[in-house]
Amino acid sequence: MRGMTIMKPQVQRIRDLTLVRREGSRVLVIGCDSSASIGNKPMDVIQTPPDIAGYYAARVAVMEVLSAGADILTVIDTLAVERNPTGSEIIRGIHRLLHEAGLTDAHVNGSTEDNFVSCQTGIGITVIGEADEEQLKLGCSAIGDCIVMLGEPLVGSAVLEQEAKQCSIRQLQQLAGAAEVHDIHPVGSKGAGYEAVLLAELNGGSFQALPGITEKLEASGGPATAVIFTIEKSNLELLQTSIGGKMEIIGHLYQ
C-alpha cells in the first residue's frame, strides 16, 4: 500500500551460517557444506558407498543449522553425479539423516548431472531453517560459563568404526531445546579449540582451556562428530543425565 514502509531483509553472516532477518521475529538460518572425491567412482580419493557420503555430507550442514536453535524447513542437494545409480544412493543417505532429525522426504529437493558422465563424486548441501530471534543460540553465553564438548572428534575410518562416540542428531536437538544451554558450535576440521576461541570472541570474551588437553582440542571433528556448548557449571550434571553421551569440560569463558 502507498505510504507503507517495508523493511528490507537484513543479512548477517555468523560462523558458517547466514542469517536473514525480515519483518517480524522469525529469522531464516541458512547453512551449507560440500563434499568431493568421497564415493565409489573411479577417481574418488576415499572409496565409500554413496549413501554414506550423502549421509555425512548432509549431517554437517544440518548440524550447523540445528546448533543455532533453528527448525529445518528444507534441505537442497546439488549432486555432480548422475541420478541413477549414484545420485539415488546419495539421496537415500540424506533421507536417512533427515529421518533421524524427525523430518520427511518432502523436506528434500535438488538436482543431479545427467548431461555428462561423471567419474568423481561431488555433493553440495544447502539447509534452510527458521527460528524466533530470542531462541537463537548465537552470542548468548555468559562470562564464567564452562565450555563442554559432547561427542568425540573423529575423522576418516574412525567415523564409521566409532559411530557410538558421535554426538547424535537427537542429542543436538535436545541441546538446542534446553534453555540452560547457551551457544552451540559443531566441531569441524579445525578442531574444538578453534571453535571455542571463535565462540568466546562472538561473546566478547576469551577461551581458557583446561591444561593437558591440547591434542584433543586440535583433533579434526571430521563431519561434525562432536559439538561444543556453553552452560553454567551448576546445570551440567542434570543436563548430562537427561541427554546422555560423553560430556567433557574443555575450558571456560573469561573476560
Rank of each mutant, 00 (worst) to 15 (best):
M1S: 13
R2C: 00
R2N: 08
M4Y: 13
T5H: 08
K8C: 05
V11M: 07
V11K: 08
Q12L: 15
R13H: 13
I14M: 08
R15G: 12
D16S: 14
S25P: 04
V27G: 01
L28S: 10
G31E: 01
G31H: 04
C32A: 15
D33M: 01
I38A: 08
I38G: 00
I46V: 15
A53V: 08
Y55S: 06
A57D: 09
A57R: 07
R59N: 09
V60H: 02
V62W: 00
M63W: 01
V65H: 06
V65K: 03
V65C: 06
L66A: 03
A68W: 07
A68L: 06
D71N: 14
T74G: 12
V75E: 02
V75S: 00
T78Q: 12
L79N: 08
A80E: 10
V81E: 01
R83G: 09
N84F: 14
T86Y: 07
G87P: 10
S88Q: 14
E89H: 09
I91V: 15
I91K: 10
R92T: 14
I94T: 04
I94S: 00
R96G: 15
L97S: 05
L97M: 14
H99W: 13
E100I: 05
A101N: 03
L103I: 06
H107E: 09
V108P: 07
E113R: 04
V117W: 10
G124N: 02
G124T: 07
T126M: 14
V127P: 07
V127D: 09
V127N: 10
V127L: 03
I128W: 00
G129P: 11
E130Q: 15
A131Y: 04
D132K: 14
E133W: 10
E134L: 13
K137D: 13
L138W: 03
A142P: 03
I143M: 15
D145I: 08
I147D: 03
I147E: 02
M149S: 04
L150I: 07
G151C: 03
E152W: 03
G156M: 00
S157Q: 11
E163V: 14
C167E: 10
I169H: 02
Q171D: 11
L172D: 03
L172W: 03
L175V: 08
E180Q: 13
V181G: 04
D183I: 04
I184M: 09
H185I: 06
V187T: 01
G188H: 07
G191E: 04
A192G: 08
Y194R: 06
E195W: 03
L199K: 02
E201H: 11
N203Q: 08
N203P: 09
G205Y: 02
F207K: 07
P211E: 10
P211I: 13
G212C: 11
E215R: 15
E218D: 15
P223A: 08
V227C: 14
V227M: 09
I228S: 02
T230P: 04
E237F: 07
L238T: 14
Q240C: 12
S242M: 12
K246D: 13
G251T: 01
Y254A: 13
